[in-house]
């Protein structure tokens, strides 16, 4: 995967929660202050935007002066932690109106935060959150399964996947199993 031309919007990658949760490695493309920040997912793709569809089970309003929302979005493999603060006014207004539980689609930026005791917290800075339906959720699971399998098929042959191998020691079979298990949770 080569980086996109500057004027082209970054695609939103599809990733399951259990893979997203393992993400640790991030880098900056270029030296410029405005160069994009990427993470590399364990199955070997760089990303500075993701698209997630799942169930918003919980939301919390936090902060006094700087209000922000936290939310949990569940997919068949685990949980995405969603943040929407004053830098994402659209997402914040949207999440404020949504009553849990609800199927939601989230577009946002991966965010890594290192705690003092060395843990890495992975969350999504939401750009938008919208209410969708169950069928959209199922389509997302298929979409994410396909994208993940596509990445595993070329694992070890691309620059990003070699980096992922080095950083995470990814075992492709483990991720195939995760994909398989996610697919079996769709009701036929």
């Amino acid at each position: 995967m080569t980086p996109q031309a500057a004027f082209e919007r970054e695609p939103a990658r599809r990733v399951f929660a259990s893979e997203f949760r393992e993400t640790r490695y991030q880098f900056k493309e270029g030296d410029d202050e405005k160069s994009p920040n990427y993470v590399i997912f364990p199955t070997g793709i760089r990303s500075n935007r993701i698209f997630v569809v799942g169930t918003l089970t919980e939301k919390q309003r936090q902060g006094e002066q700087n209000i922000f929302y936290r939310g949990r979005v569940i997919d068949p493999t685990g949980t995405f932690f969603i943040m929407a603060g004053s830098y994402q006014p659209e997402a914040m207004q949207q999440i404020a109106r949504i009553e849990t539980p609800a199927f939601v689609a989230v577009v946002g930026k991966p965010n890594l935060f290192m705690t003092q005791d060395g843990n890495c917290l992975v969350s999504v800075n939401a750009e938008s959150i919208s209410v969708v339906d169950r069928e959209t959720r199922d389509l997302w699971v298929l979409d994410t399964a396909r994208e993940t399998l596509d990445r595993l098929d070329v694992f070890g042959t691309t620059e990003d996947s070699r980096k992922a191998q080095e950083e995470y020691g990814t075992q492709p079979d483990l991720y195939r199993k995760i994909v398989y298990d996610a697919l079996t949770q769709i009701q036929m």
Partner: peptide, 20 residues
């Protein structure tokens, strides 16, 4: 709008489960 097609699910299950 894209609609859910069970055969796509079947295809992906085969892809994911075939080698594991």
């Amino acid at each position: 709008p894209v609609t859910f097609k069970p055969q796509e699910l079947a295809t992906l299950l085969n892809r994911a489960g075939g080698e594991a």
